[in-house]
Design a protein around this nucleic acid. Sequence first.
DNA 1: CATAGTTTTCAATTTTTTTTGAAAACAAAA
DNA 2: TTTTGTTTTCAAAAAAAATTGAAAACTATG
Lengths: 166, 166
Amino acid sequence: MDIQEGKQKFIESWGKMASDWGINRTMAQVHALLLIAPEPLTADEVMEGLSISRGNSNMNLRALMDWGLVHKQLKAGERKEYFYAEKDMWTVVRQIIVHRKKKELEPMLKVLDEVANIEPNCPESESFCNVVKDIRMLSSKANQTLDTLIKADSNWFANIFLRMVR
Amino acid sequence: MDIQEGKQKFIESWGKMASDWGINRTMAQVHALLLIAPEPLTADEVMEGLSISRGNSNMNLRALMDWGLVHKQLKAGERKEYFYAEKDMWTVVRQIIVHRKKKELEPMLKVLDEVANIEPNCPESESFCNVVKDIRMLSSKANQTLDTLIKADSNWFANIFLRMVR
DNA sequence: CATAGTTTTCAATTTTTTTTGAAAACAAAA
DNA sequence: TTTTGTTTTCAAAAAAAATTGAAAACTATG
């Protein structure tokens, strides 16, 4: 396999995986393109590299900056903006966790807290309360665990992995 | 808040969360409905309960059975099929991990293995190989960790959580 | 084997999400 | 201030995903 084919495959596969996870496929492809680029790219190069429109390129670059996965770089004497991806994979994982936890886990926890006040006084409400209680416990544990992960450094992270597979 | 409102909120929120995670919203709502039901429901009751069509109800019930999150129950002397959700949350989490790992992580790992053979011999290919190497390592560690999780029992799982938040 | 209750299928439709591209906004240089 | 290169916006179009519902398939029972 040559380098061009490899890049192609990687970008495609990264996009596929992301879309399975509810992330815009193009956003992930822009991310992949920047991840494997040796130098920062301009919005035009991203457009070109993925055959997408200027608007699409711009929007996804901004989304990636929102997620903290891509940064802007200005070159002295140039008007164009350059973009490069965060390449430390532990930081990438951390940023994704931070973002998704805030947007997805926390709202769910809030709803669970709200509905947890219901009185269990019939088979219907008893069944409901049991399930809510269990999910609430699990989610809040997950939430705490993710907080620990976010604060942890990459060595600690590697350690947990090692401990778990041993 | 009364029980009806609570159920409504829970079903909605479970569906929202799932759709953020790339899972069909209705499938998650069917799951939520069955989770909080004190007794198994028929396809008709699911249709009714969520105001969806027969086809939709049927398809999502089958998908949930595919994921191992819902089971069929036949009642003696009745022709209708009844469905109930797996209520042990550790089993639910495990089933979701099994399913998504197979459908999403493993294909990505396969691609990473394929592209890992490329020779790093120019800035372009060097950058590519570095990123691929890192992601490959992380993914394969994640894969191993998930295997351990899948095999683990719920006590062990709770333990890991405890260890991590301590 | 015929009937009736039930589940499954899938082409057509609807809804949701993503993408486009041209115009507007912006900002550096002339 | 005007020109020019660049980024941003967003209504409209396109693409993708989900849903419907009626017909077909299935299956227990008389």
